[in-house]
Amino acid sequence: MRESRLSEPPAVRRFLIAVAVLFLALFLLMPLAAVFTEALRKGVGAYLAALWEPDARAAIRLTLLTAAIAVPLNVVFGLVAAWAIGKFDFPGKHLLITLIDLPFSVSPVVSGLIYVLLFGLQGWFGPWLAAHHVKIIFAVPGIILATIFVTVPFVARELIPLMQAQGTEDEEAARVLGAGGWQMFWRVTLPNVKWGLLYGVMLCNARAMGEFGAVSVVSGHIRGQTTTLPLHIEILYNEYHAAAAFAVASLLACLALVTLAAKTLVEWKTSQSLREPAHEH
């Protein structure tokens, strides 16, 4: 952007900067600092012990399992949806994009509730599932389902605008040069969207590992069995093990920081590829 020579008086400038910095410091920096300070309040030994305790390890395992199922599913969905929406024209496209966004606007608690109403004892399939001894609600499958629901939009949302903007010329070029469908996808389409995909995956993963409301409704809070990391934090905090709760929370805070770093990297990479004078559209 060209810098405008016009600007506000220095006093106004300084005041606005001070207000913005103070606001962000209070709302972002201070909570971030507090997480790590509280986590280490009782020393490094207590910190590590809180992470190594069996229930914590079980929560880590369950969180990783949940993400390992929800994230790949939503990556495949995101790629598939972005291909259909980004590269083709068809009626009802905007409605479909809105539908993909839907889980974003549903309250996490309601996201959990809808699965309880489907698979819980009082739900549509509840009696049938009970008769066949399949447990979904208050068990791991319910946690995974609720997590999939809340993370549906992440990858698709990153990829759809990207694929739309890139158009179809590269793919057409690959086709004319004799590439098959998969060759085109792996060698041309995927490399073109890799940075957006990476960010989408990071966001999806952060949410999958950090989801609280939806998982809380379907989990049943059985310690060591159906508690993910955020639920484990809740239990520790409510039992007045604040330092332990923050120790576990610091893991998720680190994950958040890595996600933000990935975002910065991706933005830097895409701004670089945009700076190419290649596409004068």
Binding site: E169, D170, E172, A173, A174, V176, R187, V188, P191, N192, S273, E276, A278, H279, E280, H281
Partner: peptide, 12 residues
């Protein structure tokens, strides 16, 4: 052989 208007070179 097709040469696209904006070349469509694979940038990676």
């Amino acid at each position: 052989g097709f040469v696209f208007q904006h070349y469509a070179l694979f940038r990676h």
